[in-house]
Computed example of a mutant assay.
Amino acid sequence: MHRSIITSILLGLAAGAVAALMLTLMHGLEALIWRGEAGPLRIAVTIMAGGVLIAMMRWRLPGANFDSQLQDGREGLPQPLSKAATLAGLGIVSVGFGGAIGPEAGILAVVTELSALISARIARDVAEARLIGQIGVAGALGGLYGSPPGGAGFANDAPDAPWPLLVLAAVAGLAGLLLAGAVLPEGPGLQLPLPPAPRFDLPYLLPALVAGLAGAVIGAAYVGGLLGFHRLLGAVSGDVRVQVLLGTALFAALAAAFPFLRFNGQHELAQLAEQGGTIDAGYLAGVGLMKAIVLGLCLAAHWLGGPIMPLAMAGAAAGAAVAVAIPGIDIGVATAAGVAACCTVGMNKPLVVLLVLAFMATTLALIPMTIGVLIGWLVAQILPDERLH
């Protein structure tokens, strides 16, 4: 047991530091590429250039995505160094060239390889190798999301999972990310800025339900778009490189017309938290819907990333639209419920979503988030189980 505790602490610290380093590389490339004013032509050309790079790397790893990275990490399977390097490059390019995705998958690629290298040297059996892999995942995502229980939930949601060790690794991962962030320019990991929410009382129940339903509808649009684009691109060509280029061309055209569709949505969330009550409800609803659909398009086109931050941005826009459209609804309550419902429908992991959002959000709004998660879970029951993150 002492051996497992020490492994959880040290590997968790290392995974958090790796997450901070990868974030710095991703956002450093993003700042370099998008420096200065970006007009429609520049946006389209830049995104297509990113698509070409992704297509070149994807021929070796056509099926890798966030879910497969999670599974590889959980199993503790050894990976060729070339595969880890290619996945890391895919993640960095996908984020840096403006993809409407989060950074999780690229970070997991590096941490999974680190865990496999450690496992090859110290693991005594398959069970310990699997535990080391789960510790790496928990440390990376616990640090990235700022949520130790959420990171542990992503690492292994099986009933017999070694939860105390995974939570310990996730706490260490958060510490590693914060320590690395103190010296790296990127600083802390992902944050979810939301408008402040009042103490939740019974009169807020109905508004939270309405906003949660709006967020769930946006989440359902993401699921439909993801599966629809995936099938459409697959029907056009069985060559993954052609799928990348076709999907990227559509994404480039949309982003050129609507520049806010680029990136993971964290900056737009901050703006929404400050000005959401003054923005037109129809515009907010349109932003949320388009962001969700473009997230599905990017993932179907094999850009490598995670879904939670773009889904959160889309759900927050849907909740804010409800607050603006219906007088008397508190925007903090509405955005919290909308975010939780949208993420739950999109990721189909209600408990993990709640654990992540409760820590990642800058505003504590646990009751409206719980209501949103419940609504999202109910809506998810009528949608296909398939998710292709």
Score class of each variant (00 low, 15 high):
residue 289 L to M: 10
residue 216 A to W: 05
residue 272 L to V: 09
residue 241 R to C: 06
residue 211 A to F: 05
residue 262 R to N: 13
residue 214 A to N: 05
residue 303 W to R: 05
residue 261 L to D: 03
residue 242 V to W: 09
residue 288 G to K: 04
residue 301 A to R: 02
residue 239 D to H: 13
residue 304 L to I: 00
residue 252 A to W: 08
residue 299 L to I: 13
residue 293 I to H: 08
residue 285 A to C: 04
residue 261 L to K: 11
residue 281 A to I: 03
residue 302 H to S: 13
residue 280 D to M: 13
residue 211 A to W: 05
residue 305 G to D: 01
residue 257 A to L: 15
residue 301 A to N: 01
residue 255 A to E: 10
residue 259 P to Q: 14
residue 259 P to Y: 13
residue 305 G to R: 00
residue 265 G to N: 03
residue 256 A to L: 12
residue 227 L to D: 03
residue 279 I to Q: 07
residue 253 A to C: 12
residue 243 Q to F: 07
residue 216 A to L: 12
residue 215 G to E: 07
residue 285 A to S: 08
residue 262 R to S: 11
residue 291 K to H: 08
residue 294 V to H: 07
residue 301 A to V: 04
residue 278 T to D: 13
residue 249 A to Q: 07
residue 212 G to N: 08
residue 290 M to N: 08
residue 259 P to R: 13
residue 277 G to I: 10
residue 270 A to Y: 06
residue 277 G to N: 12
residue 255 A to W: 10
residue 295 L to S: 08
residue 237 S to R: 07
residue 224 G to K: 09
residue 278 T to W: 08
residue 244 V to S: 01
residue 279 I to L: 15
residue 274 E to F: 12
residue 251 F to C: 09
residue 212 G to E: 06
residue 243 Q to R: 15
residue 253 A to Q: 06
residue 223 V to S: 07
residue 305 G to P: 02
residue 249 A to K: 10
residue 244 V to P: 00
residue 284 L to M: 08
residue 267 H to A: 15
residue 298 C to Q: 01
residue 264 N to R: 11
residue 306 G to F: 04
residue 283 Y to S: 14
residue 279 I to V: 15
residue 225 G to D: 06
residue 213 L to H: 04
residue 225 G to P: 02
residue 294 V to N: 10
residue 214 A to D: 02
residue 220 A to Q: 11
residue 211 A to G: 08
residue 223 V to C: 11
residue 291 K to F: 04
residue 253 A to N: 05
residue 267 H to S: 14
residue 277 G to D: 12
residue 295 L to K: 07
residue 273 A to K: 03
residue 247 G to V: 02
residue 292 A to G: 11
residue 300 A to K: 04
residue 281 A to K: 04
residue 260 F to G: 06
